[in-house]
């Protein structure tokens, strides 16, 4: 079942600059979909349109069977949570627990129940020992984890990560990516990740490649990354393991699987043993 359906979506600034042009896509319930594209490909705009933070110029968006329009906005917002790019600018509360509480306050949840909910979701992202900390005392990765907890606390069925790792250091990036992966594994939430991190996209269920406001390619990771030239033309790279695979194939070496660097190393070692 498709939880999000988009038909012929269009978005322009002042009827001049075309950001999205005739974009149609479907996202399956419970899937982990990545939308990749170079800067200015319109991928962040797409995320904001789905969440109803921007007004579309044309086309239709259905979220969970509801058409996105003014009257349904309140319902649709409840279905969608977004984790944005900048860790500082989405930290609304003055401390970790206040930030998680913000969404709960908007949902009119009884303050007496809030402490339990806050603790539950702070533990989910490993921030339960930082509840009273103020944002300027946290690292970027920790702030993003709080943002994820805040979104989880509202209990949306869809979570959009809008380049949530792009402003973090390598350690923070890895933490957040692992967290997203676990979240997908342990819950039935639909995850949409807007990213230019090719490695992350490789591990998702389905990929949409955006270029200049149009869908350039769509498919499973293996289908997307089987042609590195095509992707390089739109300034996108292929994952490291795919690159190795191509180089190996050039040298007529075949191994069983290429899913991760570790697997490739293991398979190559076995190859040596066989010979």
């Amino acid at each position: 079942m498709n939880i999000i359906e988009i038909k012929n979506l269009k978005f322009t600034y002042d009827n001049k600059e075309v950001i999205l042009d005739d974009v149609s896509l479907e996202i399956k319930k419970g899937s982990y979909t990545t939308i990749i594209g170079h800067n200015g490909s319109g991928k962040s705009t797409l995320a904001r349109l789905i969440a109803g933070l921007l007004d579309k110029s044309g086309g239709d968006i259905w979220v969970n069977g509801l058409l996105l329009k003014e009257e349904n906005l309140k319902h649709i917002r409840k279905e969608i949570g977004i984790v944005f790019q900048n860790p500082d600018n989405q930290f609304i509360g003055s401390s970790v627990k206040d930030d998680i509480a913000f969404g709960l306050e908007n949902k009119c949840i009884n303050p007496k129940e809030m402490d339990d909910i806050i603790f539950k979701y702070a533990s989910r992202v490993g921030m339960e020992n930082f509840l009273d900390k103020e944002p300027h005392l946290l690292s970027g990765g920790q702030k993003q984890r709080v943002a994820i907890a805040s979104v989880l606390a509202i209990n949306p069925s869809i979570i959009i990560f809008d380049e949530a790792t792009s402003m973090l250091d390598p350690k923070g990036k890895k933490e957040i990516k692992d967290l997203i992966k676990n979240l997908h594994k342990d819950s039935d939430k639909t995850i949409i990740s807007i990213t230019h991190d090719i490695e992350e996209a490789y591990h998702s269920d389905y990929i949409y490649v955006l270029n200049k406001g149009k869908i350039f390619k769509k498919g499973k990771p293996n289908e997307i990354f089987n042609n590195s030239k095509e992707l390089n033309n739109i300034k996108l790279d292929v994952p490291f393991n795919v690159k190795i695979k191509e180089e190996l194939e050039k040298n007529k070496i075949k191994i069983e699987s290429y899913n991760s660097v570790e697997e490739i190393v293991e398979n190559l070692c076995r190859l040596k043993l066989k010979n």
């Binding site: 933070l53 917002r77 409840k78 944005f84």
Partner: peptide, 17 residues
């Protein structure tokens, strides 16, 4: 955007933590 995405609507009733 972040406030809106987390369901904040000015003038609407909210509870207080």
């Amino acid at each position: 955007s972040a406030m809106e995405a987390r369901g904040y609507i000015p003038q609407e009733p909210r509870t207080r933590y």
